[in-house]
């Protein structure tokens, strides 16, 4: 099981801040494909990966990164701190 976290407009489009998922996805991109296929709200949130960032266990990662051993995956738009 992995924890999925969503922030900012990704959270709003999907309609929840976090959920747990049992997945066989090997990479982040595989996980995104799996989520997109679930429901329209996921397809909408993940429509354009260039406007999304992903963190694996709280470290920024690429969409082709492997998920083996990862416990927490977070999806969010580019950050606007400062």
């Amino acid at each position: 099981m992995i924890d999925l976290l969503y922030f900012a407009w990704v959270r709003e489009r999907i309609g929840l801040p976090r959920e747990r998922l049992a997945t066989e996805a090997a990479t982040v991109a595989d996980l995104v494909e799996e989520l997109r296929a679930r429901e329209d709200r996921y397809a909408l949130a993940f429509a354009d990966l260039s406007s999304l960032r992903v963190a694996l266990d709280q470290e920024l990662a690429d969409f082709d990164a492997p998920l083996a051993g990862v416990r927490e995956v977070a999806f969010f738009p580019p950050m606007t701190g400062g």
Binding site: F7, A8, W9, A55, L60, A74, F76, P77, P78, M79, T80, G81, G82
Partner: peptide, 26 residues
Amino acid sequence: LMDYLKSRAPFWKKEVTADGADWVAA
């Protein structure tokens, strides 16, 4: 510090006006 906090610290800003609320784009 400022350059990195802007783009690498996980914060997201939303502006609220009388017309509604919008996420600030990076």
